[in-house]
Amino acid sequence: MPSLFDKRLLIFSGKGGAGKTSVAAAAAVAAARRGKRVLVVEIGDEERLPSIFGSRKKAGYAGGPVLAMPGAPPIWSMCLTAREALREFAVRSVKFEVFYETIFENPVTRLFTAAAPGLDELTIMGKLEFLVRDSVAPARNGPFDLVILDAPSTGQGLALFKVPLMAMSMARMGPLHTKAERMWQLVADSARTAFNIVTLPEEMPVNEAIDLHRAATEMGLPPGKLIVNGVYPDFFPGDEAALSRARVRGAVPADLPGRLARAAVDAAASFVTRRQAHLALIAKLDAAVPLERITLPFLFTPRIGAGELATFADSLDGF
């Protein structure tokens, strides 16, 4: 099976809070370890990627290096906003900045473009397509091998990829149709693109992942991997039943050491219960989502940093 990291565009989507941004960052680390020149792209006003990579400098719309690992190409990140993407597109298509000022900085146009439903998604998709076409090898002198997109969460994420289809059906010919078609051809091309789903081993995220996979398949997005994040590791192999029994047995001791011992056993039993719930939900996912699954461990650290990214990247390495 060809590696995930030989694609040109890796999309990571899933429910909010499932850890898409961390997983996208870890995928960048795993790709860079293989010598890939990676650009990770996030969308929105609040830039989160550089700090996850441990960089104090923001990368902004222009993008910039955020992590240099020894012996690997530097990882870049970029933070897209629809407003800047529209400006870039307009300047590029009308060629002269002065026309841009006349047309797009006109108060009426500004109001219109700020409000037109779907336009934000369309310009972001346009920028993404341009990035892959212009900056990713085999593009001439393309500075990157791979673009990783930290996509918006489920509902909004699908809306983003639906917009080119919507534009194609509205404009049945002409430049908009051509452009939208090019966007769609990129995201739908299984040779270049993979649509990956990130989820947690909890009921709602699991159901949402199942729905997302179904919707993405219906749309024709090329299947990638299913990443289950935050799974409790197997700390008590063989002792599960004993711990669960110990929990229900006996009264709470009166002395402090006795109570602490009790709390420790309860915490272990509780861990076992939750791990079993995780496994049951993973089984449910496996039954419903026919994608290769990657499991990432729950991290008992206060915050995702370089060490945690490396741990995640280890888990992603073989894919």
Binding site: A242, A267, A268
Partner: peptide, 15 residues
């Protein structure tokens, strides 16, 4: 609790 040998240590680590 008829656990495996180092169960107690792992219970402590877990807490």
């Amino acid at each position: 609790v008829p656990g495996t040998p180092d169960l107690a240590a792992r219970v402590a680590d877990n807490l």
